[in-house]
Write a protein that binds this DNA or RNA. Structure first.
Lengths: 147, 147
DNA sequence: ACTCAATAGTTGTATGATACAATCATATAG
DNA sequence: CTATATGATTGTATCATACAACTATTGAGT
């Protein structure tokens, strides 16, 4: 039951949250914002999708995704494809420029993470990656039921 | 150099960031907000401090801390103590009620984390705690120099 | 076939943590 | 004694988000 790991995770999550909140504000991000990045990533890995599906996948409100998508569309990173069989629906698909932009942003992020993990051993990196993913998965499960 | 761990951490951090952004919005938090919680925690573990010191410690803008402190003060969780030798300065110290509130909030958070980490082994929890702390420390170092 | 409910998406509005800039009061240096 | 520095507060803007209201289209039941 180890109170200690529990307390540590609880506290460090709080710390990380604040850092993240801070970084997403003051960083004059280039073209892509983190939120939009994940949207691009989703489309790019799972193919074209409508806002409803994207919202579910990303666990965001539809309105939020709608705005993000509109913004990406306006920048030319994704494009709206009408569905013939349902005139209410669209699919957003990623454009070549969108792919380029996403990859570039991803590269920048990876470099930053790489600098950040400067003194880390390969073992630690690998473990952290795995556990972080596990954590996110746990959160996803936890949220989709109750709460 | 393992591109893989790097990519994984990079991506999962993005995911976690969005989740955190999401949770801090839609959760009708009780009395304490995460940001304020860390402020209380800081005062409670490191003793009374002024907003300037707190802002440095928490790596936030002074104005942000000032508002958070004012809010906590107003709720009676911390109190302002004037410094006799410098009439511009105050120390904020935690009140009994503040301690109680902080502990209670902490307890709730721990329970949530505990539920979240439901299927995790003790080994994984311990590792994750350690690595998460290491990550936060790395971020702190990374930020305090350049960037 | 007509009406009404369901559904996909957009838009209006509010919120909350944050940063930056301006300001106020006090302190310190020249 | 004045000018500058410093601690703190307050004004303003931003941004991702949620919820609610709305529009347009679809489908279901009679």
């Amino acid at each position: 039951m180890s109170e200690e790991s529990l307390s540590q995770i609880e506290l460090e999550m709080a710390v990380l949250s604040r850092r993240i909140a801070s970084v997403s504000r003051n960083k004059r991000e280039e073209n892509l914002v983190r939120a939009a990045y994940l949207l691009l990533f989703q489309i790019s890995t799972h193919g074209p999708a409508g806002v409803k599906g994207l919202a579910e996948e990303l666990q965001l409100d539809i309105s939020t995704v709608s705005r993000q998508a509109a913004s990406l569309d306006q920048k030319g990173y994704i494009k709206k494809v009408p569905l013939p069989q349902d005139k209410r629906s669209y699919l957003y698909e990623i454009t070549e420029e969108g792919k380029r932009e996403m990859t570039e942003y991803q590269q920048i992020r990876r470099e930053k993470v790489n600098e950040l993990l400067n003194g880390w051993t390969e073992e630690e990196r690998a473990q952290f990656g795995v556990l972080l993913k596990k954590f996110n998965d746990s959160v996803k499960v936890y949220w989709s039921k109750g709460d």
